[in-house]
Design a protein around this nucleic acid. Structure first.
Lengths: 214, 214
DNA sequence: CCGGGTATAATTGTATACATTCATCCTGAC
DNA sequence: GTCAGGATGAATGTATACAATTATACCCGG
């Protein structure tokens, strides 16, 4: 396994994305490249690159006065869930149809790790495995378009709902749902994988919308 | 109407995107920032910005050897159509529910322009109005997430299928479908708008996949 | 003839200097 | 007092210089 180089720009992007989604910066706050540059201790170049990526995802809005923080609203979360409801099932179906033995091993390993961290109530690690689980499905469903579409949507939700997965009952339910989806994919049962995934997204949506205060 | 500043980086992005989608650069061709810089007569900075945006949409792949052209495949077109089939209808439904009189006037104006250019068989202008039509629906459907999801997908298809809209029969059919969708939205008939849009996407998919040689 | 290792060249990644645009504030005329 | 208009500052947009990484070609030894 080769370690892909993580540039400063990538790190700045992740940092800023997390800070925006987790509320370090509030909506409509104005940032500037220069201030971010000195705050983070890097030049404007990687800052600009990160900010442009945030702009492309509409997490910020670039104006002549500076970088306006946008973030995502409760309505955005509802909309994203609605979109996922219509796509994730198909992605899981495709994944079930195309998964190799290697892919299935990877998925099972992720679920096992998730089980481990769920037992330890390690919310951050649970979140990471959840992320890996879905991203793995996006990757092995064989469609670049599907991956490019779902990946950013899922990222936005996930980072936003650290609160959600901290609840033990939801964590356990999520684990059970992942396990079931994983086994449906392992059995190459596309229809079942699709059904289970839609159910999973529905539950995740309720869990997020109910708990989030905003 | 304020004209938004179009930076050099934006122009480079549009140029490169078009060149990639229309086949000026072939798949797996390696570009470099320096060469593009001198070819297009601007410094590396705006080139980099444009290339990063292309990378985020996976139209290119950044390697240590340079910028590898990826573009989109026939499979990508099929996948994108599949995704649009599941989302565009919902977007149209939302648009029908939320459209103001102003929005409806805008849509009708676009359809009229499309009719004008269809009569003149001006393929490029038809394509532009088609683009405006769908983007307007994405904008007035009231969901940032939906807009951000559908807009890039539609752009990729549209630029790729100039061939498709050159066929007079398809151009006329598309016009009729747009008009029907527009009237359903004007009547705030969400269900009908959704049904018509799904039909429209199906027809567009066939038109593209049948004609495209690749 | 083949393989490895080193030097070289070419590329991306980052920093900085400069240009340009835009908002803001002050000033002065009416 | 109010509004116009220009000066000023601060922000983004662009160009260029520099650093670091990586591919490649060449040479030498086997």
């Amino acid at each position: 396994m080769e370690h892909k180089m993580i540039s400063i720009a990538d790190q700045v992007f992740e940092r800023l994305e997390m800070d925006i989604l987790s509320g370090v910066y509030e909506r409509d706050e104005i940032l500037t490249e220069s201030r971010l540059s000195e705050q983070l201790g890097v030049s404007r170049t990687p800052i600009r690159e990160a900010v442009r990526r945030l702009d492309q995802e509409h997490l910020v809005d670039l104006t002549s006065k500076g970088i306006r923080v946008v973030g995502i609203s409760r309505q955005d979360i509802a909309d994203i869930s609605e979109i996922r409801l219509r796509l994730e099932g198909l992605a899981a179906r495709w994944a079930a149809e195309r998964a190799t033995e290697e892919d299935i091993r990877t998925l099972r390993e992720i679920v096992e790790l998730q089980e481990f961290y769920t037992a330890k109530s390690d919310a951050d690690s649970i979140k990471n495995q959840d992320s890996r689980f879905h991203q793995t499905i996006y990757a092995l469903c064989g469609s670049n378009a599907m991956r490019d579409t779902l990946e950013p949507l899922h990222r936005k939700l996930l980072k936003y709902r650290r609160v959600s997965v901290s609840a033990k009952s939801r964590a356990q339910q999520s684990l059970a749902e992942h396990r079931a989806i994983c086994e449906a994919i392992a059995a190459h049962d596309g229809a079942e994988a699709e059904r289970l995934t839609i159910e999973h997204v529905k539950n995740a949506r309720e869990s997020i919308l109910n708990r989030q205060v905003l």
